[in-house]
């Protein structure tokens, strides 16, 4: 499992020891019976060979979230007026612009790079250090990019699913992406060159609270309605990343249920559903 050097040094030693212990104790997922090709295909598609270790880290992250991040994000969402939440979100988005610009260039998306640069100039000046996203008001909408996406555009495979401590769902490609984006970010460079490490903490912490508050409702709802929250988030992470990599153009190409040769479901209970037919009918009509 790859580690995140830039952030790793900030992680408490005790947490590290616990995580390493859990990873070793968790071990690897049980291989399927090699004589069952369908099971083997499914195992490869799930692509989570370190699942027990990943689940242990997932639970650790969930514990930390419940204890610290979620309460803070809930307070932030409920107490801070929406107007100020939007200003904080805009400012944090604006700070990311240089990294987005770099990745636009690396992906050969010159139009998008120009848009990012224009946005950054407008928002940092007229928008008062990014606090007001004037560019969007002017019709210049923003987008996100990161080095994980750039590596994907360059053809690097994602590798197996990995849950990072604190950072959550990832894979080797996106882990490299997080490290590279962190190292080239001008804000972080400025902070570490001028002994202002606290600024990096403050930014990372605010971003975590900001994103957690924005996704509160969706995550709560997923946690409540899914049978296996871990597997649901694993699937969603991959699908969302694939969508982001294609800049939203690829999501219609997923395999989906087809009507195929099966009788088209017309809302009637299927044949053989004798037990519940009367109940179901009375429930509907």
């Amino acid at each position: 499992m790859s580690w995140h050097p830039a952030h790793g040094r900030h992680v408490r030693v005790s947490t590290l020891v616990l995580v390493v212990f859990l990873v070793l104790a968790g071990g690897c997922a049980t291989m399927p019976d090699p004589g069952d090709p369908e099971a083997v295909a499914e195992f490869n598609k799930v692509n989570d060979p370190a699942e027990p270790a990943n689940r242990a880290i997932f639970e650790l992250n969930r514990g930390l979230d419940t204890a610290f991040l979620k309460p803070v994000a809930t307070f932030y969402r409920d107490v801070i007026p929406q107007f100020f939440q939007d200003r904080i979100n805009d400012a944090l988005d604006n700070l990311r612009a240089p990294v987005i610009f770099l990745n636009d260039i690396l992906q050969g998306e010159l139009d998008r790079a120009l848009a990012t640069a224009a946005r950054f100039m407008v928002n940092s000046t007229i928008g008062i250090l990014g606090v007001i996203d004037i560019a969007t008001e002017m019709g210049l909408e923003g987008h996100d990019e990161d080095f994980g996406q750039t590596l994907a555009v360059w053809g690097m495979p994602e590798g197996p699913y990995v849950v990072l401590p604190l950072f959550g769902p990832s894979n080797p490609r996106d882990t490299i992406g997080i490290v590279v984006d962190f190292l080239v970010d001008p804000f972080n460079l400025w902070a570490s060159n001028s002994n202002r490490d606290f600024a990096v903490f403050a930014r990372t912490g605010s971003r975590a609270v900001d994103l957690r508050a924005i996704h509160m409702e969706a995550l709560d709802s997923l946690e409540k309605t899914s049978l296996d929250y871990y597997a649901t988030l694993r699937s969603l992470y991959r699908q969302r990343r694939a969508d982001e990599i294609s800049n939203g153009k690829g999501s219609a190409n997923l395999p989906a249920p087809g009507l195929g040769q099966a009788p088209l479901d017309d809302g009637q209970p299927p044949p053989g559903d004798g037990i519940k037919t009367s109940e179901k009918t009375s429930r509907i009509r």
């Binding site: 049978l227 649901t232 699937s235 699908q239 999501s251 989906a256």
Partner: peptide, 24 residues
């Protein structure tokens, strides 16, 4: 005429449920 799948911000409802149920 019927809906087969709903894809929200790139995430397909049926794909996600398939992963969820398969894991269980």
């Amino acid at each position: 005429i019927k809906i087969l799948d709903v894809v929200v911000e790139g995430a397909s409802m049926s794909q996600t449920l398939r992963s969820d149920f398969g894991s269980i």
